[in-house]
Amino acid sequence: MISRRSALRTGAGFAAAATLAAPSILHAQTKTLKITTWGGKWGDIMKATVLPAFEKEFKCTVSADQSFPFLPKLQASPKNDPLYDVFHTNSNEQWSAVGEGLVMDKITVKEVPNVADVYPYAVSDKVVGISIFTSAIGLGYRTDKGLAKPTSWKDLADPKLAGSRGGYIIPVNSLGQCHLMMLGKVYGKGLQDLDAAYKALEALKPIKLVDFTGQMEKMLLSGEVSMGVIHDSGIYRYDGQNQPVDFAGPSEGVMALEQVLNVTPSSKVKELAFAYIDYMLRPDVQKVLAEGVWYSPSNKKVKLDAKYDAKLYTTEAKVAQLIQPDWKWYNARKEDIDARVTKLLKG
């Protein structure tokens, strides 16, 4: 016979179990989108506003990985159950990933309607996936060292800058790789003229080389470097902080540093992944991020505040100055280039 006390105890037990199980049931019904994304100011904005709004609208949770590098982790995960659904990297890594079948070749307007409103460079044949933003790789320089604003990439070779010019460790940094290709264009027959590029690179010695753009920013801010290769965002983000640094886009053109989103072919939440890319291309989302980190938005319909509009690549005429590297070509000979530049820049 069941006593009143034991019945109450049993009922309470069921209630407690149901309460404990509820979040997991809810969790099972809520889709999770696994993405990669940057840290820093970009990551702050994403976590504070962009991602929570997406989660609310699409009734899902977003799991964001900010620990770079992402591609080795994707490589190590099973192809039929990839670690990420949306893969955000720069363009060179997307080309490596597509070569291994880890991401999709193209994203079209059929999957992502907002693709209809992007500048042509964002979906050009130089891009795998879709570029949602771009920066311009040019020259950053100190304004307190008596230097004229650089107008050409050749200005970096000025003998006065010996020892105070900055570049990148080319094997590990895509800005360094872009700079090498640009040297081929400026001093030789084109972006793929590696012999001319190597010769021009050697002429830049002594040069301070760093791994990451963040280090270049610090070197410019501290005065360790007077002029260096950097993307516009890396300089403009100090706007209003009274720092004696500025950015110059050389006349030969600036290289595009695209922020590319792509979807893994075996993602279990592909529709949600496409919805996320579409969301990231919405004018209001693009505006928040573009003005937050000084990235040029890919969506033509974005209206930035005058301060940002004046400097970023927001018109057809401006984006025409962007040069997109052929990463497929570069990646195919990366090992040879790495060995050559490592020897060349040593010592």
């Binding site: 591609l71 080795p72 890594e93 090992e335 790495d338």
Partner: peptide, 10 residues
Amino acid sequence: AQQVGTSFNP
């Protein structure tokens, strides 16, 4: 580290 992180050749 270079081979894993940037050349993607584990």
